[in-house]
């Protein structure tokens, strides 16, 4: 069973999303709590316990719901924001920053999407109608992996249908595309997939759909007319790097016609110091540990600059040679 227990905040006990989740998971015991923070992160729960005792929390997100994205987050020139609809992920990618971010691997789903959308509306009003305002989902959780369970996507579709100057990115590694196909494409909703060469995904992206399965899902969405984006992130160096990425770029551009690719972001594997510490502890035999990392300009642990730039520029060249307009390929979180 995916979850060991569901914790529900009493204030959202009767919320439609809460009821929907409970109905979908009838055999999982439910505990009602006053606040998510009474249990979640109250005591440190080891990350790898997500493998056999993952809890699900349902509650209301408080505080700022939509936040300004850091520099080098999306296509430059436009204002970028990200919104928080969930914490943590059902997948287990070895390099994932979530392992050092929260003190618990338990999944939290927030149900107050109406408030998130109201905040988005407010932000859109602060920008001129000529500006394209981006809202990114998936900062702290996969945007689609549990969308069939949480069921909030129709609310977002309704909102973005009415807000032509706003764009939303749903970022995923899942192949859970049925809810999207049911809703149909919208010009200002971009579905983006994170991809790695097959061998790297097999090695580092634990419990995720294979690269081939993701490419197949991308093709189905592209065929249905969805706007697409691609994250080639994190790029990991090994001796087969060039041939593996050449193959991946070729395959992804076969799956999604170039004209439907809104952007491709490129990023090289990187860790904050805390995440690197957690990662080394959680995966002491990971092949990633064999990389020669340095403490970089922003205190992140990553390859040295010539290696990073070589990786990024090589993949960038492959994308452009594949027909993607150079301005659609951007380097994520890399100062240049």
């Amino acid at each position: 069973m995916l979850f060991e227990r569901i914790f529900v905040e009493k204030q959202v006990q009767q919320h439609p999303q809460t009821l929907r989740v409970q109905e979908a998971l009838p055999k999982i015991p439910v505990t009602y709590i006053d606040k998510i923070s009474d249990v979640f992160e109250k005591a440190r729960k080891p990350y790898l316990q997500k493998r056999d005792s993952l809890n699900l929390f349902l509650g209301r997100k408080e505080g700022q719901l939509v936040k300004e994205a850091p520099d080098a987050y999306g296509l430059s020139g436009d204002p970028h924001y990200y919104f928080i609809h969930a914490y943590n992920c059902i997948y287990e990618c070895e390099y994932c920053y979530l392992q050092g971010y929260f003190h618990s691997p338990d999944l939290v789903m927030f149900v107050n999407h109406d408030e998130i959308l109201a905040e988005m509306k407010q932000i859109c009003r602060q920008h001129s109608p000529e500006e394209t305002v981006w809202f990114h989902a998936g900062e702290f959780s996969d945007s689609l992996a549990l969308a069939h369970l949480s069921g909030e996507l129709p609310e977002y579709w309704d909102f973005f249908r009415e807000m032509p100057n706003a764009r939303m990115e749903l970022r995923t590694k899942s192949v859970n595309i049925k809810p999207l196909l049911t809703l149909g494409p919208l010009e200002n909703i971009i579905i983006t997939f994170s991809l790695s060469p097959s061998a790297a995904a097999r090695q580092y992206d634990r419990k995720t759909p294979s690269t081939q399965a993701r490419l197949n899902a991308m093709k189905r969405l592209a065929d249905a007319g969805f706007q697409m984006g691609i994250h080639l992130d994190p790029i990991v160096y090994d001796e087969r790097f060039e041939s593996d990425y050449q193959q991946l770029v070729t395959e992804m551009l076969q799956a999604v016609p170039v004209e439907q690719v809104n952007y491709i972001s490129l990023g090289v594997v990187r860790f904050t110091r805390d995440v690197f510490h957690e990662f080394s502890k959680n995966y002491p035999k990971s092949g990633l540990l064999a990389g020669e990392f340095v403490k970089s300009f922003d205190n992140k642990v990553r390859y040295n600059r010539p290696q990073r730039l070589y990786l990024l520029k090589t993949v960038q060249r492959m994308c452009v040679e594949g027909g993607v307009a150079p301005e659609k390929v951007y380097l994520c979180m890399e100062a240049e």
Binding site: K42, A43, R44, K45, P46, Q49, D52, S53, H103
Partner: peptide
């Protein structure tokens, strides 16, 4: 035992420890 938590006067403490038994599944 897998992970060891602590409670002081019914208040959970943040720090926890995990035992060396990788097969353990109870806290």
């Amino acid at each position: 035992i897998r992970t060891v938590y602590r409670s002081d006067n019914a208040e959970m403490q943040f720090k926890t420890f995990t035992t060396s038994d990788a097969a353990a599944s109870l806290d």
